[in-house]
């Protein structure tokens, strides 16, 4: 991040700025989704866009996720750059055929002759008291599919730079935003910038243990690293920023340096993002590791409603702190 960044904006505003800048730059960029126009989505992330760009480019759709996502695939093939808004990440299940069987495969199946430059923006994250169908973190599903790219920003700065790149990408990109992070403020320069997909970011340097964290878990890992510092443990926090393409080198290099790794992601661990990243590190840094790679993710249960139950399902600063201390044999 540049030294000169001084202006602070929220995560939601960073997203909105990225969309507005790309829509000014490229007349083919348009937004499709439920309550995206005057309502600006329930999270108010898109407020003001319809006023600037009009209803021809910010389109309210029926509650038909498969229908408008499919339309976006066809529109992307034929000259537009649609950004579809899937309000809750849980609703991606309704778009699966369009994303997995269509968007992801069109370029390959056509021998490279058609391409699908579209973005799906959606959300992830629990602890909003929204229960099992509005709280999941399903980014691993798309990360599994060749042909898709998956972005998981963790700061306002990353959100803006990565979204602008995603919109300019020639492939279908799924962009997951943590709902709980929309009000988080962070430095974002006024000057234009983009961030390439597939480049991890070292959020904090350290020597004793590596905390690989994604999206909502980056702030958790940073909080844990502050607690660890007080306990005399120097933690490095690495944010892959994209699960595909995945910056394997930065992950492996950090693991080799610290020799201990915890991977933290809000999705389910079972066959999940943490499993993939742990495997990459185990294969790439095996002889430099002093402990097995540990994984932390959502508990393997549907997300419950009751606050004390829900809070138990996701990693916290404290649980990461305790796990890191144990891994460093400092209990």
């Amino acid at each position: 991040m540049p030294e000169v960044a001084q202006r602070e904006v929220t995560f939601a505003q960073a997203i909105r700025e990225a969309l507005a800048e790309e829509m000014r730059r490229d007349a083919t960029v348009c937004i499709l989704g439920e309550d995206v126009a005057e309502a600006g989505t329930p999270f108010k992330v898109l407020s003001g866009l319809v006023e600037e760009f009009g209803k021809d480019r910010v389109l309210d759709t029926p509650i038909s996720e498969a229908g408008f996502t499919g339309m976006a695939v066809g529109a992307a093939m034929t000259g537009l750059r649609p950004v579809v808004d899937i309000m809750f990440g849980d609703f991606i299940t309704l778009t699966m055929d369009q994303m997995v069987n269509q968007a992801a495969k069109v370029h390959y199946m056509s021998g490279g002759r058609w391409k699908v430059p579209m973005v799906m923006r959606t959300t992830l994250g629990a602890t909003r008291r929204s229960a099992a169908q509005h709280s999941q973190s399903l980014h691993a599903w798309f990360s599994h599919v060749p042909g898709l790219k998956v972005v998981l920003p963790s700061t306002p700065y990353d959100a803006k730079g990565l979204l602008k790149t995603a919109i300019r990408d020639e492939n279908p990109v799924v962009f997951f935003e943590d709902k709980m992070m929309y009000k988080l403020k962070g430095p974002v320069p006024t000057e234009e910038y983009t961030i390439p997909l597939g480049v991890a970011d070292i959020k904090r340097e350290g020597n004793d243990i590596t905390l690989v964290a994604t999206s909502s878990m980056v702030q958790v890992a940073l909080g844990a690293s502050t607690l660890l510092e007080k306990a005399g443990i120097s933690a490095e926090v690495i944010d892959p920023r994209t699960t595909w393409p995945l910056d394997e080198k930065t992950l492996i290099d950090s693991a080799k340096k610290t020799s201990r790794v915890i991977v933290i992601d809000e999705g389910y661990g079972r066959y999940g993002v943490t499993a993939e990243i742990a495997s990459v590190i185990a294969e790439g840094a095996f002889y430099d590791l002093d402990a097995p790679v540990k994984r932390m993710g959502a508990m393997h249960v549907p997300i419950p409603f009751s606050p004390p139950l829900e809070d138990a399902t996701v990693p916290t600063e404290n649980s990461v702190f305790e796990a890191a201390r144990a891994l460093c044999n400092r209990n």
């Binding site: 339309m71 695939v73 529109a75 992307a76 269509q102 069109v106």
Partner: peptide
């Protein structure tokens, strides 16, 4: 030709999207 599709009704969205772009 936007493509033949082996998912039954798999291309209804694509055709509609092409019309949208047009």
């Amino acid at each position: 030709n936007l493509g033949a599709n082996a998912i039954v009704a798999g291309s209804v969205g694509i055709a509609t999207g092409a019309a949208f772009a047009a």
